[in-house]
Amino acid sequence: MEPILETKNLTVQFGSHIAVNNVNFMVYEKQFKSIIGPNGAGKTTLFNLLGGQLKATSGKIYFRKEDITSLSSVKRTRKGIGRSFQMTNVFPNLTVFENVRLAVQSRMNIRYPFFKHFSHYTEVNEKTYEILELVLLKEKQSVLAKQLSHGEQRKLEIAMLLALDTEVLLLDEPTAGMSMEEVPAILSVIQNVKKEGNRTIVLIEHKMDLIMNLSDAVTVLFNGQFLADGTPEEIMENETVQNAYLGGLYNGSPS
C-alpha cells in the first residue's frame, strides 16, 4: 500500500533551535493515525509543516507521491489536506452558520461570483445544515462564534474542517483546554467521522489514554525527533516511549 502523506528527513529550525529534526513520517490512506509526545515535542510544528503554515528548512513532503514541499497552504487545502488548529481559529464576529458556510463555499468552488445573493446558493446552505447537525451545533447556528463556549468553538473548528471535505484531516488537539464533560462530545464527533470510513485522519493528542482505542497507528515524537511508530499496543509496550513519558530524560540515543 502507498502512503497518502509522507515526509522525508523533514527538518525545521528556528535560530539554533531545531523544532522538527529529520522526521520520516507516513500515513496510509484511510488510516487513523495519532501523533503523541510530551510538550515541545514538535507535534504542532509538524502539522504546520504538513499544512503549509510553515516552510521546511530541509526535507520533503509528499502527498500521493507528489512533492508538495513548496506549495502554499491554499494550494494544499485545495489538493485535499485540511487542518484544524490547536488555538481556536474561527471568524469571531460571524455566526456559526456563516463560519461553516464559508468553508462549504470554498469546497464547492464558489470563489468569485459577485452578484448573486449568497443565500440563493441552496446547495451550500443545505450542506452547511448537514454538517452542523453532524457536530451537534444545529441549535447554535445563529450565535456569533465568539459567544460560544470553548468546547463549542472546538466543535465549530471541526465542522469547518469537515465542510472542506478533504481527504486528509489534520486535527490538532481537538480536546485541548476542554473540560472533562465536553470531551466525550468531541470524541463522538471524531468517531462519527471515522465511522464514515472515507477519510484519512491524523490526530495530535496529549492525553494518550484518550486515543489508544481510536487509532490504527501511533507515532511518538520527542524533542523534535521521531521516536517510535506502531500499533497502539506496541507503543504502550515500547520501553523508549515509557522512558520518554515517565522519565522525561530521554537523551536521543536509542536505549
Binding site: 474561527v90 464559508l102 445573493h117
Partner: peptide, 16 residues
C-alpha cells in the same frame, strides 16, 4: 454575494 462574504471573513481572520 459569496465574494463579499469572503471579504468579511478576511476582515475577521485572514489566515483562516
Amino acid at each position: 454575494s459569496p465574494f463579499g462574504k469572503v471579504l468579511v471573513a478576511i476582515r475577521e481572520n485572514e489566515r483562516r
